[in-house]
């Protein structure tokens, strides 16, 4: 441990750079997120502006040049859309859906988990019984059935993901909170007669965050792949806002005739994103895991 490592955040960064693969993955992840956020500036064309796409450039293989000299690095789909641009825009939808749903799920999980640990008794049993029941079913299946009942739409996918994911956070938060509540600083806060919400959000919350951060990175990857699978199955995002999963589904029909690139490259983008998140998440877990700390 170097002498400069004085703040928790700096210590985290110092431990993080010790793994070369984690650094590469983190850089890749930053690039992916930047490309998604600034899709309008990064993508060679706006794939959903009909004035920019040319139907005569349809189904061109990767590396082709269109009629007007436009270079299609990853080829085009059947409507003449540049696949690279479609992937960058699709990435934006995939990432924002999973980021929003995980953020809300974290908030709900924090409140529910801390409440269960703090109040105990029937509140605890009720919340944890719901969590147990929910976690005994696969997330994909629950989300699929919820979307069957909700219908298609970006907002509905987000809602279904929140309902599926909050339970993971509630369980983790409760476990961490039960350990923290027994510690002296909580007793000290109690003896000052602070109101319950101030103890929960001012004192307990910062100390249950490390495991939540670990689970959140893993669950963002989970949310991305669930969303992709739902969209592939035709119950996720609508055709007007195609995520990576829907792009892959659209290419399925052309795969058998050898036009592989329409679903191949969106899948590579999806895979790279998931691998980067998982590698970064593994490294954060190793650092924050108390058993691994020296």
């Amino acid at each position: 441990m170097s002498a400069a490592a004085d703040t928790p955040l700096r210590r985290l960064a110092g431990d993080f750079v010790k793994s070369p693969s984690a650094v590469v993955a983190a850089i890749g992840l930053v690039l992916i997120v930047l490309a998604a956020v600034f899709a309008g500036a990064v993508a060679p064309q706006n794939p959903y502006d009909l004035a920019q796409i040319d139907i005569f450039d349809g189904s061109l293989p990767p590396g082709s040049t269109g009629f007007d000299g436009f270079h299609y690095l990853l080829g085009t789909d059947e409507q003449g859309r540049d696949m690279l641009s479609a992937i960058i825009y699709g990435l934006r939808i995939s990432l924002s859906v999973s980021f929003i749903s995980v953020s809300v799920a974290v908030l709900i999980g924090l409140v529910m988990g801390m409440l269960a640990a703090w109040r105990g008794g029937w509140v605890d049993s009720l919340i944890m019984r719901i969590v147990d029941i929910q976690l005994s079913f696969p997330a994909l299946l629950v989300a699929l059935l919820l979307l069957a009942a909700l219908g298609k739409g970006v907002d509905k996918v987000i809602l279904a993901l929140i309902i599926v994911l909050w339970a993971y956070f509630a369980r983790t938060v409760r476990g961490a909170a039960l350990v923290e509540i027994r510690k002296d600083y909580i007793t000290a806060a109690r003896s000052q007669a602070l109101p319950g919400w101030r103890i929960l959000f001012g004192h307990l919350l910062p100390n249950v965050m490390p495991p939540v951060i670990v689970i959140a990175t893993v669950q963002i990857a989970n949310a991305i792949s669930i969303e992709a699978a739902l969209s592939f199955l035709g119950v996720g995002v609508p055709i007007t806002e195609p995520s990576l999963g829907l792009l892959i589904a659209n290419g399925f029909d052309y795969l058998l005739s050898g036009r592989y690139w329409i679903s191949f490259y969106p899948g590579i983008a999806l895979l790279l994103t998931l691998v980067c998140i998982n590698v970064v998440g593994d490294q954060i877990r190793d650092i924050l895991n108390p058993r691994m700390q020296r």
Binding site: A228, A249, S263, L274, N278
Partner: peptide, 29 residues
């Protein structure tokens, strides 16, 4: 095995079809 955990299941299926059914033509799609 890390790759096997991360790879989206449905896309992996499409790639298996692409290799075994479309390019090599040894298994049905």
């Amino acid at each position: 095995s890390i790759l096997g955990f991360s790879i989206p299941n449905f896309w992996q299926g499409l790639m298996l079809i692409m290799l075994f059914a479309v390019y090599w033509g040894i298994l049905p799609a």
